[in-house]
Design a protein around this nucleic acid. Structure first.
Length: 270
DNA sequence: ACACGATCCTGACTGC
DNA sequence: TGCAGTCAGGATCGTG
């Protein structure tokens, strides 16, 4: 589910409910996530005030009086802020009960997500090797061009590598390459600088548009207030195999690239 | 160093 | 209707 726009929409949605508040209690119903939840999570979090909530790639980091809470939504996770007496559903794994009667509820059917307390995650291997933020100033066409030289990997797989740039997952890689007119199978190292300018611009635009639309809901994703994300309505290629290309009308194609389903126009993307 | 496939897990959907 | 097979928004690990 969640790529950068969905995580950022989540961050913006929960931030006003969390920042400045104290965690009164914690309910852990399932510890088996991508890595097990701290066995002393409740003790670590109880009574702590949340000072700040930030995002690094697809990770969310909550700064506490002591330490940090690291969250990741995996493929199927979402976070919602609900009143504490809200009925618990299957796969509602963790609740952070806040002093105001609300609760932050972590839901993740496939359990590829993370919810971990630590002293400081910024120097942890999980975050250390990450590439630049796609909406930050270090990310530009020159960076992509330099970073991609001699890479034989398909440009789509290259874009989805968090060591290259964070936050661009399968949907937005497909959409960005369509907008930039680049064949997703093309070797990253064989793309010239001017085309990387178009690609960079496409990535930035699409991520920004998706954030404004509230992200993309395919099935699992919901915003913290329970609403869906509406960028799905703006998808030009993702999930549209055999439908006409919005630019040239030719039937869109599907392919498997790096083990991930990919969609493109054989006419417009070279 | 790099590129690829398998893997973790549940649920939804397809086709027989 | 039931059941097996396939696929899914991510990230890591082992292999060649």
């Amino acid at each position: 589910m969640p790529e950068l726009p969905e995580v950022e929409v989540t961050r913006r949605g929960i931030e006003p409910h969390l920042v400045g508040r104290r965690i009164a209690a914690v309910a852990v119903r399932e510890t088996r996530l991508r890595r097990p939840v701290n066995d002393d999570l409740a003790a670590r979090l109880q009574g702590q005030r949340i000072a700040r909530l930030h995002r690094r790639g697809k990770y969310l980091l909550a700064d506490l009086d002591r330490g940090q809470l690291l969250l990741h939504l995996g493929m199927s996770g979402h976070l919602r802020v609900v009143p504490q007496d809200t009925l618990v559903q299957r796969h509602d794994h963790v609740d952070l009960l806040l002093e105001d009667g609300n609760c932050l509820r972590f839901h993740d059917p496939r359990r590829f997500g993370l919810l971990l307390w630590g002293e400081d995650w910024t120097s942890d291997p999980l975050l250390q090797g990450l590439g630049p933020e796609p909406l930050g100033s270090e990310f530009d066409a020159d960076y992509l061009f330099a970073r991609s030289r001699r890479h034989q990997q398909p440009i789509k797989s290259f874009l989805m590598d968090a060591h290259v740039v964070v936050g661009v997952g399968n949907i937005y890689a497909n959409e960005s390459l369509f907008r930039a007119g680049i064949d997703p199978r093309r070797a990253a190292g064989r793309i010239a600088l001017p085309r990387f300018r178009r690609l960079h611009q496409a990535i930035v635009e699409i991520l920004q548009e998706a954030i404004i639309a509230g992200g993309t809901t395919l099935r699992d994703f919901t915003r913290p207030d329970g609403r869906k994300g509406y960028f799905r309505l703006s998808l030009a290629v993702y999930g549209r195999e055999k439908e006409p290309c919005i630019r040239c009308g030719k039937a869109l194609r599907a392919a498997r690239i790096g083990g991930r389903s990919s969609f493109y126009c054989g006419q417009c993307q070279r």
